[in-house]
Design a protein around this nucleic acid. Sequence first.
DNA 1: TTGTACGCGTTATCAG
DNA 2: CTGATAACGCGTACAA
Lengths: 381, 381
Amino acid sequence: MSERVTMKHVAAALGVSTATVSRSLRGDPTISLATRRAVQEMADRVQYRPLAAARRLRTQSSSLIGVVVQSLGDGYVGEVVLGIQRRARDLGYQPLFFASEGREDLEAEALEVFLSEQVSEFIAVSPTARPRLLRQAVEEGLHVAVINLDTEVEQDLFDAVESALAIPEVTAPGSADLDEICNIAFDDVAAGVLATAHLADLGHRSFVHLRGPHVRSSLHRLLGYRQALEALGRWPQPVLSTTDSAEPQVQEEREAAVAKFLRTCSPPLAMVAYDDLSAIAALRAAHGLGWRVPEDLSVVGIDDIPFAAYMNPALTTVAQPTHELGAIAVDALLGAPETQRRGCMLDGRLVVRESTAAPAAVANAHRRADLNSVEAPMGAD
Amino acid sequence: MSERVTMKHVAAALGVSTATVSRSLRGDPTISLATRRAVQEMADRVQYRPLAAARRLRTQSSSLIGVVVQSLGDGYVGEVVLGIQRRARDLGYQPLFFASEGREDLEAEALEVFLSEQVSEFIAVSPTARPRLLRQAVEEGLHVAVINLDTEVEQDLFDAVESALAIPEVTAPGSADLDEICNIAFDDVAAGVLATAHLADLGHRSFVHLRGPHVRSSLHRLLGYRQALEALGRWPQPVLSTTDSAEPQVQEEREAAVAKFLRTCSPPLAMVAYDDLSAIAALRAAHGLGWRVPEDLSVVGIDDIPFAAYMNPALTTVAQPTHELGAIAVDALLGAPETQRRGCMLDGRLVVRESTAAPAAVANAHRRADLNSVEAPMGAD
DNA sequence: TTGTACGCGTTATCAG
DNA sequence: CTGATAACGCGTACAA
């Protein structure tokens, strides 16, 4: 029934050629201002909408920007994605999102789709150690930017960093082979330092780090923890780790690991968690054992996911500049030449909320007794 | 440098016509199996990829399914979107996501984009009271499905439902004018009933509902609360409300409202919150006043956002069948004829975690004294 | 300043 | 069973 309105209609209605319409609509200055205006007016009078497919077929380019994420539901990713969408829109681009669910086959499919859609700019948000996707992407001629590339890292490196020995040479993120891509990164080392220094500034002397999975960001945050402590002359300090398992149980394992550790020591204690989710697990563990946060245990997370502020107590954390990360990635690919290309590193921002406080030194002695006598309110279930 | 591989290349390499290639690739049975196979083989030997733009220009249809959400970061939306993406992929469609940020201009832009992209199927996830978008969409000839349409509702209706009077005629969601669209809905009334009944089953006698904003879902959940209570012969019971304000403060306002209420009464108490976020605010308020959850206050949320399980205590809640909602919406638009068209209503599922328990009747008397003597640990900051 | 004409890669129609 | 050919809507080189 309702025919699609094409340039032909606009042209006919005005008695001009389609070429004139085309040129007018894109503001070609060789067309007289009068006709340009007339065309404009007629175009939206008849509700003309350029057909993306036709334009793409003709120009061989799509003004589509492919974005692969693991999951759109993740709060952190959502923020980054928002930054991408806003900046892309400013530049006249439309993001094409694809959730990979962490599956390699879906990542491959994403690439197929992008190629079919003539996507030429490609952003991967926090890809977990899948160089293949990125390799293929550059091989296919896409311009790719990565936000927080997170490659897998050997256990040995963690062991070394956790030891009292000299810090080993920590390779640059991503490193070697991936060279064409630009990596927009959060400074995980600095975040680790920031979190730890905050606790130290509060007067804490006794620290613990809840380590993340075997990936670069985890290693770097640990490194920051160590660096800050070394600067204070207090290294080594304990590091907790859990087996890297699949999503469902990971929170419980973290909670268990923290609980186990807390039983071996006495307040006050200061914890730097790998990320906010880890910190939240720690909150639960502490509560389960009757440790009060922040009085007995100060906890600082990293990321500042949307829910951090809603926790009880609200989580002190190092915020990632999520929107910026997204915007910069877009700029790096599409922005004016002055916007950098070769990647960059952004600092986090300390957000102090309720989960950290000065150690309650005075009350120590008698609280300690308390803790030993009470049963854990929630026990292990 | 790297030329795009087209059907022409495939055809040339095999000495056949592009028509044959085209037909073979789409499995046209009029082509001999032999050639079909040969074409297939050659096609992926030379890495042929159909150009979406060309196909669309020719067929006038895009196998793209437009999806408008408010925010991709929202955990709830993320889950729904996942359901959409999975089902869409099964049917050979590619979702095109657009985050409206709740802005009407962006919604309009989304529609423009969809039209340009020849999108013919359109899903809106939890649109908040913006009939305009949907109207325009159907006017432009799109097939639209809505997941949890949430229109604004007058204060009067809330007042009426909260009163002791007879329940007023509550109009169907969306209602009247939006008729072409199919509404895939979560049964909010049933969810309210489920949550309330759970608390009643636990033995609670004293209830309170923390009401949501002035939208249909909020009204319906309140209605469920009332219905369940009426069935028990315990209506009326208190209902808490906050001013509907913009995102940033809403959590704090909810927390304050709950705190204010808790000060006026004594444990044990059972609360049905509008949603998980409200419930989380209640958790904070309770903690701030020294009420223990679930011993003094049982709280049940609705939605089961991903974070509900991580809360401390983990939140008991009524889960929305998020993936299903998404999948059904896709089916309603694209699925086989046997998959319904005219919308449907899905039930929630009670997920019992740690925030609800039987009222601690015995301990009441002396605990009450406690509560009155202690200062709120966290005070108001 | 504007019009004419062609081609982008694909599919559909019509012959063969 | 397969091939030639036209057309989808737009942008642009070239001509006027």
